[in-house]
Amino acid sequence: MTSQVLLASRNAKKLGELRRILAPALPSVEVLGLDDVASYDEVPESGATFVDNARIKAQAGFAHTGLPTVADDSGLAVDALNGMPGVLSARWAGAHDDAANLQLVLAQLADVPDERLGAAFVCAVVYLDADGEIVTEGRMPGRLIRDPRGDGGFGYDPIFVADGHTETSAQLSAADKDAISHRGQALRALAAQLSRSR
């Protein structure tokens, strides 16, 4: 029998990622997005950490739908910006505008030497159902470049090169990105825990 899990997101690329990663471990699970369930008022992401924000979204999704709910919060932590934009990554320039956010980060780093452009993508995933909560996290260290490259991915992917790679996250295939990404790490850890409990 197929069971349903809600991903508390309208982001089609996140939905695709979750489906790709969960399918091998949990083939009987159907992943739904917010557009697949009755609409409800989404709670502001007011947490101080990635885990806090993921938990806020998971609790809201579970409360409104009764479905086991997965939520993630992720972002870019730049060493030279003291870990910012961090939880504010999606609205660093004031709105959910990927291009504006990316350009603002690059402008803020204009006077920072290339050797100090270390950064990491960080992700927290919270799964919530009637039996409780599972929290997993992932981190992809790397460095930033000044000239965006690639048209895959989203967010800051065009200026981020993971450690051990020469291509940006926006230049990697979906499978290659999933294999190393912060979200891939966190979702695989979640899938492993869920597969053991089923």
Results as ranks from 00 to 15, higher is better:
Thr2Arg: 13
Thr2Leu: 11
Ser3Met: 10
Ser3Arg: 15
Gln4Asn: 15
Gln4Ala: 14
Leu7Thr: 02
Ala8Thr: 00
Ala8Asp: 02
Arg10Ala: 11
Asn11Thr: 06
Ala12Met: 08
Lys13Cys: 00
Ile21His: 03
Leu22Arg: 06
Ala23Trp: 00
Ala23Lys: 14
Pro24Ile: 06
Ser28Cys: 07
Val29Asp: 01
Leu34Asp: 02
Val37Cys: 04
Asp41Ala: 15
Glu42Trp: 07
Pro44Leu: 08
Glu45Phe: 07
Ala48Asn: 10
Val51Ser: 11
Asp52Pro: 11
Ala54Glu: 02
Arg55Leu: 14
Arg55Val: 03
Ile56Thr: 10
Lys57Ile: 13
Lys57Ser: 13
Ala60Val: 00
Gly61Ser: 10
Gly61Glu: 07
Gly61His: 08
Ala63Thr: 07
His64Ala: 15
Thr65Ile: 06
Thr65Leu: 04
Thr65Cys: 06
Leu67Val: 08
Ala71Trp: 05
Ala71Tyr: 09
Asp73Val: 09
Asp73Gln: 07
Leu76Trp: 10
Leu76Met: 13
Ala80Gly: 13
Ala80Tyr: 11
Ala80Ile: 06
Ala80Pro: 13
Leu81Gly: 05
Gly83Phe: 08
Pro85Gly: 12
Gly86Thr: 09
Val87Leu: 14
Ser89Asn: 02
Ser89His: 05
Ala90Ile: 14
Ala90Thr: 11
Trp92Val: 02
Gly94Ser: 11
Ala95Pro: 01
His96Thr: 13
Asp98Val: 08
Ala99Lys: 14
Ala100Lys: 10
Asn101Asp: 03
Val105Met: 02
Ala107Tyr: 04
Ala107Trp: 08
Ala107Ser: 15
Gln108Phe: 08
Ala110Ile: 00
Ala110Lys: 10
Asp111Gln: 13
Asp111Cys: 00
Val112Gly: 13
Pro113Glu: 04
Asp114Arg: 13
Arg116Glu: 14
Leu117Asp: 07
Leu117Ser: 03
Gly118Arg: 11
Ala119His: 05
Cys123Glu: 01
Cys123Leu: 03
Ala124Thr: 07
Val126Tyr: 10
Tyr127Glu: 04
Leu128Asn: 05
Leu128Met: 13
Leu128Cys: 10
Asp131Ile: 00
Gly132Val: 13
Val135Leu: 00
Thr136Asp: 04
Thr136Lys: 02
Thr136Ile: 06
Glu137Gly: 10
Gly138Leu: 02
Gly138Glu: 02
Pro141Cys: 10
Gly142Thr: 05
Arg143Asp: 08
Asp147Asn: 14
Pro148Ala: 07
Arg149Leu: 14
Gly150Ser: 09
Gly150Val: 06
Asp151Gln: 15
Gly155Asn: 11
Gly155Tyr: 08
Tyr156Lys: 09
Asp157Ile: 02
Pro158Glu: 07
Pro158Ala: 02
Phe160Leu: 01
Val161Phe: 00
Ala162Glu: 03
Gly164Asp: 03
Thr166Trp: 07
Glu167Phe: 12
Gln171Asp: 05
Gln171Arg: 14
Leu172Gln: 12
Ser173Met: 07
Ala174Met: 11
Lys177Ser: 10
Lys177Cys: 12
Asp178Thr: 11
Ala179Lys: 04
Arg183Glu: 13
Gly184Pro: 06
Gly184Tyr: 01
Gly184Glu: 02
Gly184Asp: 02
Arg188Trp: 05
Leu190Ala: 08
Leu190Ser: 07
Ala191Gln: 11
Ala192Gly: 11
Gln193Arg: 15
Leu194Cys: 11
Ser195Lys: 15
Ser197Asn: 13
Arg198Trp: 12
Arg198Pro: 00
Arg198Cys: 06
